[in-house]
């Protein structure tokens, strides 16, 4: 005859929270070109000149 069943503790589940932190690095510097950055400031200066001049 098998021995009677008895409850035993089980190892609790651990949730994986680290995966939520897996994201791309910032690509802003790669998307915006140096030239674009400078032309946009040029434009700003031109507009300013247009306003004042």
């Amino acid at each position: 005859l098998p021995p009677p069943f008895k409850p035993i503790p089980c190892k609790p589940i651990l949730f994986d929270l680290a995966l939520n932190h897996l994201i791309f690095p910032s690509l802003d510097d790669k998307v915006q070109s140096k030239r674009q950055a400078t032309t946009s400031t040029d434009k700003g200066q031109q507009q300013q000149a247009g306003l004042t001049g």
Partner: peptide, 16 residues
Amino acid sequence: IDEQIRPLYAELQKYG
């Protein structure tokens, strides 16, 4: 090269 890959990075950012 930078000029060539810039639109690809924009695409990558979107997919991310």
